[in-house]
C-alpha cells in the first residue's frame, strides 16, 4: 500500500487532520482528479503550526482560496512579528532574507495605506499584494524559518517553550519512519516544509529512506537557507541521495514570492556534480501564488505524484 507524507509550510493552519483532508481534497478537485484514498494510498501530515501559533484556524471556508483577500487565504494567518536577532549571524540572516522580500524599510511599510484602502493598490515589488497582507506574510515567513533554522526555544503564549528544530525534526521522524504501509512512500512538502523535509532527509541520521520527494513553493534556492543547512548541504553534492531512493521533483511559480527569487533547485542540489532534481514551472491562479492547495491542483503535480506512486 503506497503512502504520502505531507508537510506544511509557513503561517497558522487548521487542525492537523483538517489540513490533511484539505490537501487531499485539493487533489480531488480537478477535472482529472487524483483521489489518494480511492487509489488505496494512505496519507499523513507532519504538523508543526501548533508549535508556532496559538489556536488553529477554525473557519476554513476561505482557506487558501483564490480570493487572496484574507489572511487565511494567503499564508498570513497568525499575527506574527519579525523576531529580534540574538546573534550577529541571526541578524545577517534576517536582513538578507528581508531584502529578498522587500526593498522598503520599516517606516515605508508603516506608512503604507491601511487594509481597506489598499486592496487594489498593492501590486508592487515582487509580491503583488496589498501591504495589509504582505506584511504578515513576510513576518510569518521570516519568523518561522528563522525559528527552525536557529532552533529557537519558543512557544505561543500560555504554552511550554520547546526547541523548534528539535521538536519538528522529531515529529518528522515519527511520521516518515512509521508510514504504516509497505508500498512506495513519497514526501510532499510545501514552503518551509521543504526546508524541514530536506534538513531531515539530508542531515538526520535516524531518518529512514523514502522513495521520492516533491517540493512545492520552496525557499531552498535562497543562499541564506542553504548556508544554514550546512554541514550536509553543498552545491555539488547536496542531493539527499542517502534517503531519497529515486526522484526529487520541484514545482515552482515564478510569481510565488517564497520561491520566486531562486526557484530552480537542480543547480544548487547536485548529486556528485550532476543535476538530478526535476524542476517544473507552473502557473498558479490569482494574485497570491504560494498557496499549497493551488500547487496541489496543478496537473503537473498530479502527474508527478501519480508516477512516483506507481498509479
Amino acid at each position: 500500500m503506497p503512502h504520502v507524507t505531507f508537510i506544511h509550510g509557513i503561517a497558522n493552519k487548521p487542525k492537523e487532520d483538517e489540513l490533511r483532508r484539505i490537501w487531499c481534497d485539493s487533489l480531488e478537485q480537478a477535472i482529472e482528479p487524483l483521489s489518494l484514498s480511492n487509489e488505496g494510498v494512505s496519507t499523513s501530515m507532519v504538523y508543526w503550526a501548533d508549535l508556532m501559533y496559538g489556536d488553529p484556524i477554525t473557519d476554513t471556508s476561505n482557506f487558501e482560496s483564490t480570493a487572496a483577500n484574507a489572511d487565511a487565504a494567503a499564508d498570513a494567518a497568525g499575527a506574527t512579528s519579525i523576531p529580534a536577532p540574538a546573534t550577529p549571524e541571526e541578524a545577517a540572516f534576517l536582513e538578507g532574507m528581508r531584502e529578498k522580500l522587500t526593498s522598503r524599510d520599516d517606516e515605508q511599510i508603516a506608512a503604507a495605506p491601511p487594509a481597506a484602502q489598499n486592496a487594489a493598490g498593492g501590486s508592487f515589488e515582487r509580491i503583488p499584494l496589498p501591504w495589509f497582507l504582505k506584511k504578515p506574510i513576510m513576518n510569518a515567513f521570516l519568523r518561522d524559518v528563522h525559528h527552525y533554522l536557529f532552533d529557537v526555544n519558543f512557544a505561543p503564549p500560555g504554552r511550554q517553550a520547546v526547541r523548534i528544530q528539535q521538536t519538528i525534526r522529531k515529529r518528522f521522524l515519527d511520521r516518515v519512519n512509521n508510514p504504516g504501509s509497505d508500498g512506495p512512500h513519497i514526501v510532499v512538502s510545501h514552503s518551509m516544509g521543504t526546508v524541514i523535509a530536506y534538513d531531515c532527509l539530508k542531515r538526520v541520521d535516524e531518518c529512514k529512506k523514502v522513495d521520492g520527494l516533491i517540493t512545492i513553493g520552496s525557499p531552498l534556492g535562497l543562499d541564506e537557507v542553504q548556508d544554514k543547512l550546512q554541514p550536509g548541504w553543498s552545491r555539488l553534492n547536496g542531493y539527499p541521495h542517502e534517503r531519497v531512493a529515486t526522484r526529487w521533483v520541484n514545482l515552482f511559480d515564478r510569481l510565488d514570492p517564497v520561491c520566486g527569487l531562486d526557484p530552480q533547485l537542480a543547480n544548487d542540489y547536485r548529486f556528485s556534480s550532476s543535476k538530478r532534481i526535476e524542476d517544473i514551472q507552473i502557473e498558479n491562479d490569482g494574485a497570491w501564488r504560494h498557496s499549497a492547495t493551488k500547487y496541489l491542483k496543478q496537473p503537473k503535480f498530479r502527474q508527478a505524484l501519480r508516477s512516483m506512486l506507481g498509479l
Binding site: 500500500m1 487532520d17 489518494l36 484514498s37 480511492n38 487509489e39 488505496g40 494510498v41 494512505s42 496519507t43
Partner: peptide, 15 residues
C-alpha cells in the same frame, strides 16, 4: 473496477 478499497480515516467522517 477499482484496484483498491478506500483508505479508512483515523477520525470520522469516513470515505
Amino acid at each position: 473496477i477499482a484496484r483498491a478499497l478506500p483508505v479508512l480515516e483515523p477520525n470520522p467522517p469516513q470515505p
